[in-house]
Computed example of a mutant assay.
Amino acid sequence: MAVSGQRTRFAPDRGLTRRMVTTMFLIGLVYVGFTGLLVALLGRAWPIVVVIAVVLFVVQFWFSDTIAEKAMGAREASPEQYPQLHGTIDRLCALADMPKPRVAVAVNDMPNAFATGRNPERAVVCVTTGLLRRLEPEELEGVLAHELSHVAHRDVAVMTIAGFLGVLAGAITRIGLWGGFRGSRDQNMAIAAIVIPLVSIAVYVLSLLLTRLLSRYRELAADRAAALLTGRPSELASALTKVTGQIARIPSEDLRRAQPYNAFYFAPALNARETAAQLFSTHPTLEKRLEQLGRISTELGR
Rank of each mutant, 00 (worst) to 15 (best):
S207V: 09
L300G: 00
V195I: 09
L37I: 09
V105E: 07
L148K: 06
F164T: 13
R182V: 03
V103C: 09
S252A: 15
M189C: 00
A157S: 11
L255V: 10
L229Y: 00
A53T: 09
A2C: 15
S215T: 01
P111Y: 11
G170W: 03
Q187S: 13
V39T: 01
E141Y: 05
F25R: 15
M98L: 03
P111Q: 03
T298K: 14
A162R: 05
A227F: 04
S215E: 00
E291R: 15
A169G: 10
D109A: 08
C93P: 04
E235V: 06
V156C: 11
P99V: 04
T275V: 12
I250F: 06
T128M: 08
L290R: 14
R7Y: 08
T298Y: 12
I247C: 07
L208S: 14
L293H: 06
P120G: 13
I250T: 15
L228F: 10
A248L: 10
R273K: 08
E76I: 14
P83S: 11
L206I: 14
W62N: 05
L270N: 10
L38M: 15
R289D: 01
Q81P: 04
E138Y: 11
R19C: 04
E287I: 08
G87N: 02
A248F: 10
A171I: 13
E235S: 13
R216C: 13
A237I: 05
F264Q: 08
P197N: 07
R133F: 00
S252T: 10
E136A: 05
I27A: 12
K242L: 08
L300I: 01
A225W: 02
N108V: 08
L132Q: 02
N262G: 14
L229W: 02
D13C: 07
V167L: 14
L135P: 08
I89K: 05
A276L: 08
S297Q: 15
R182S: 05
F10M: 07
P137D: 11
A2F: 07
W46L: 06
R182E: 13
N112L: 01
V39D: 01
I172H: 01
